[in-house]
Design a binder for these strands. Structure first.
Lengths: 350, 350
DNA sequence: TTGAAAGCGCTAACAA
DNA sequence: TTGTTAGCGCTTTCAA
């Protein structure tokens, strides 16, 4: 009853019953079923007369070929599935955007299904859901433990590509070289004259993520003290709490945050504590979030091309599916962007 | 050559050839095809002995039922498609998250395909792509012109639900009552003592969106002057430009922005111009972006439950698909959140 | 409980 | 150019 107001045209003769199938079209047009198929697919020549009758019948019956039937016969599904622990946070959403862009250009749609947690039950449910569809392949975002778990539980045999910040073997993979970028950012801060750099990390996907590794290694290489890592959640609010705390520790002069949102939270905490950035402390983020340049002060960060990452992952998957030989690894380095949230320390640290 | 390192187990006996089909399983297990189907679906009792042999064969052959074949026979596809002009911006991403949440709970996956622009070519390509899959129904996000266009070009007959800020007839719809929320926000500002409220809008989906309508009507009802609308793009940067300009106009004491990101940009512009918020000007946003409360100053805004919107839309679609009678309209009102970016005007406006 | 037979809606192969 | 005949891989009658 939802469509009580269809046009008169579409109402004529039309019992709202079963949708028309190709046999109906053939009957109405007075041709055989394969002929209809031929005009549908253009696979072979059809005489103009018949073609027109077929077209007319299609129109009249409002016929739409069954995608399911086509999928059964053409063994190439047109869907690539994405499994992810999250879909709406900046990095995730942008990566998915890139995947979709690549997929759509190739005539594929992308399905997304989120993996709520790393627990077996939820991972299996998500994986089963995906495998119950006919998909050409799957791309898993292993930015977090749910993603990592999903990758490991995916059945062998289905074309798979993973996306991550850290390299892992066994599955073709598109990555962003976070380790290098984190090193660069840390070096930059050290070069400014900071004795060491504190680190607030976001929840890692494994024991230690590239951002943390790059930071740690650089500190060690420079002979700087390696402070304890501070853990934030994904919520900017958690950054604020940490900033508030850190603000009372004068030995903290530089902080490298796991992402821009957390950095913004940390800055907020400092601001609330009456401190100013970068005069009292230098704070840098990671990602180059769209709001990073709007922040007060504008955030020094490392730009990550998530959409490009997604596109590369799609390309990798396409290659796997078609059997094109590929180097199964595609890496790109984020670029450091210096803005105003970082500066030399106010005075030489004691 | 990508998987040179499969486990020994999976390598034994396995030519990497065609995937096993149900007939293979039947043969290996020594039973008939329907029997295998029965253990797969649980549609009928199977003796323990056979069941186990079937299970063993499935394991051995690493058999996975073809989703395409199943879809053909069971006429209910398990995919709901989402058509949207964008997927990664906050409101869009959250809405999609909600849709996915509802869909997954019901055993559906969601596919997303973006409509690049409102031009026929790109709209048709997106719509065709979606219709080429076997989908249970489609949800279109008509927050913008591409979305609106997509809705209009979708073939009749496919279960459809739209999501939007403004009501439109003909299609079941889930909305957020932006008009009411915009009114409330405007009234609040007027109540603070501001003579009038300026408005910076984001690109509208049609002639005038609910946010703008609510603002305008409230101003008129209050007998306040209605300033010209200022147009921003979706980029926070465009807000900054507008803020910079507005900062030199002392008659501007209150600004209602189309969304939080733009409001942040506008605030940034004022800040750069040496003005302070809310002392020199009150600025409010819309959406309650996750960073709104981290901003300096924390943003007064209207919280929109996008994820809830998505869930409601999914629920609507489910009802349409199953033929459950529904009121084809589901609305919810955003709630105003007062923070620190708004205050009474500094002095009585002249 | 089980198997044989009959489709699901379409495209591909093969003749005519 | 066109129609007939075979499937695609699965589930669902229908008997046994």
């Amino acid at each position: 009853m939802l469509r009580a107001t269809d046009t008169l045209k579409s109402m004529s003769m039309t019992t709202p019953s079963k949708p028309a199938v190709i046999a109906d079209v053939a009957r109405v047009a007075g041709v055989s079923v394969p002929t209809v198929s031929r005009v549908l697919t253009g696979a072979a020549k059809v005489s103009d007369g018949k073609r027109e009758r077929v077209l007319a019948a299609i129109e009249e019956l409002n016929f739409r070929p069954s995608a399911a039937a086509r999928a059964l016969v053409a063994r190439q599904p047109k869907i690539v599935a994405v499994l992810a622990g999250n879909t709406s946070q900046y990095g995730y959403a942008e990566t998915i955007r890139g995947i979709e862009e690549g997929a759509r250009a190739a005539g594929f749609v992308v399905s997304i299904t989120v993996v709520e947690s790393a627990e077996d039950e939820s991972v299996d449910r998500a994986v089963d859901l995906v495998m119950a569809q006919s998909v050409a392949g799957v791309i898993v975002l292993k930015f977090d433990p749910p993603g990592v778990a999903a990758l490991h539980r995916l059945p062998k045999g289905i074309p798979t590509v993973s996306i991550a910040g850290v390299r892992e073997k066994g599955v073709p993979q598109a990555v962003l070289d976070e380790t290098a970028a984190a090193s660069e950012l840390t070096e930059y801060l050290l070069g400014l004259g900071h004795k060491t750099v504190y680190h607030v990390r976001v929840p890692p996907s494994r024991r230690e993520d590239g951002r943390t590794t790059g930071w740690r290694k650089t500190l060690i290489a420079a002979g700087a003290e390696v402070p304890d890592v501070l853990d934030a959640s994904w919520e900017p609010e958690s950054g604020r709490g940490i900033g508030l705390e850190l603000a009372s520790r004068p030995e903290v002069t530089a902080i490298f945050c796991g992402n821009d949102e957390i950095a913004m939270g940390v800055i907020r905490g400092y601001t609330q504590a009456g401190k100013s950035v970068p005069q009292d402390v230098s704070i840098v983020g990671f990602d180059d979030h769209p709001l990073a340049s709007m922040w007060s002060p504008p955030l020094t960060t490392a730009r990550q091309d998530f959409a490009g990452l997604g596109r590369r992952a799609y390309g990798l998957l396409e290659a796997v599916v078609t059997g094109t030989p590929v180097r199964s690894f595609s890496s790109e380095r984020p670029s450091v962007i210096i803005r105003e949230s970082s500066a030399p320390p106010r005075a030489a640290p004691r």
